[in-house]
């Protein structure tokens, strides 16, 4: 009886009692959701263009952030370090196309997936060899102060992250929807051979998309790195992006952001109001449960493309 009360009654009474706190939890969830979306975006881009789930996206986030901090430690100003890191990610995109993808054209998705597992280990190892395994402090000059509005605490860093995330999603959505390159990217995602047969330069497309994914990884690395320091555990934030992808759909840029927001709010509300009943720390698995619940009704995710195949 006590358990039923803790699950079905008490949390709702609590929400009704303190609506301001509930609003703060929801806003906190939205802020966290944007951070998840930043990581999920990288996955979506590569999946859209090559139909491959890029296992190395977390490692790319780490590698990009390490390159940025490494350049700053050598004395480069922020703008130059950003350019260097971006250059390294573009070079990585060329290398991935030249040494990995080119040899795997028209292979099964699982083969490409396996190749990205290899890439993950290469990036993890190379990053640690080149820049060490120490925690590195990253200060990109974003304000990090807190202020209260109507009893709700806001953090300027979280707000900046939300703004950057929203700007990035809008740009990418427009790019995919309204540019010839965006259409070409979607064509490649549908069928490598068909795209090639109508003259779409597959190699260029792959370089472009991996470069953009690299840039997204750099932004995600900056935001997460500024929060907790640049360290190996950045690789693990990929785990936070998975439920977002499942929920939002693997092929939708807006899906990544909406999925991120739903997961962010869902897990925070669950942790705060239902966590104590289940021993706490439930948000990790709750995010997957939430995504699973959505899958029951929309197997392709909220915004994913419905796949209809002739059999």
């Amino acid at each position: 009886m006590e358990f039923l009360n803790a699950v079905f009654v008490a949390p709702f009474l609590d929400i009704a009692d303190s609506p301001v706190f509930f609003a703060e939890v929801v806003i906190g969830g939205l802020m966290s959701g944007v951070m998840y979306s930043l990581v999920a975006l990288g996955f979506v881009l590569i999946f859209k263009a090559s139909g491959v789930f890029n296992y190395a996206q977390g490692a790319m986030v780490l590698f990009a952030a390490l390159t940025l901090v490494g350049a700053m430690e050598k004395g480069a100003p922020l703008w130059l370090a950003l350019l260097i890191a971006l250059g390294v990610m573009v070079a990585l995109a060329f290398a991935v196309e030249r040494f990995m993808l080119r040899k795997l054209i028209n292979q099964e998705g699982i083969i490409l997936f396996m190749a990205t597992i290899g890439l993950n280990f290469v990036l993890e190892g190379a990053g640690q060899i080149a820049f060490g395994s120490d925690v590195k402090r990253l200060d990109v000059g974003l304000p990090d102060n807190s202020f209260e509005v109507g009893g709700i605490l806001f953090n300027t860093f979280d707000l900046s992250a939300a703004f950057i995330g929203a700007a990035m999603v809008t740009t990418l959505a427009l790019f995919f929807q309204f540019t010839p390159m965006g259409r070409a990217l979607r064509a490649v995602a549908d069928d490598h051979q068909a795209a090639l047969s109508v003259g779409i330069p597959l190699k260029t497309i792959w370089v472009v998309v991996w470069s953009v994914a690299g840039a997204v990884a750099l932004v995600a690395g900056i935001m997460w790195g500024a929060k907790a320091g640049v360290q190996f555990s950045l690789v693990l934030i990929a785990l936070k992006a998975l439920p977002v992808l499942i929920l939002g759909g693997f092929t939708s840029v807006p899906g990544a952001i909406v999925g991120g927001l739903i997961i962010g709010v869902g897990e925070k509300v669950a942790e705060v109001y239902w966590g104590p009943t289940f021993g706490g720390a439930i948000e990790g698995w709750f995010a997957y449960m939430l995504a699973l619940a959505f899958l029951l009704f929309r197997p392709q995710g909220l915004f994913g493309e419905k796949i209809i195949e002739r059999v």
């Binding site: 703060e24 939890v25 966290s32 555990s233 705060v272 720390a281 948000e283």
Partner: peptide, 13 residues
């Protein structure tokens, strides 16, 4: 706090 602890917004709320 769940492993690895990169996200603790709910706890600090």
């Amino acid at each position: 706090v769940d492993h690895p602890g990169q996200e603790q917004k709910a706890q600090w709320l």
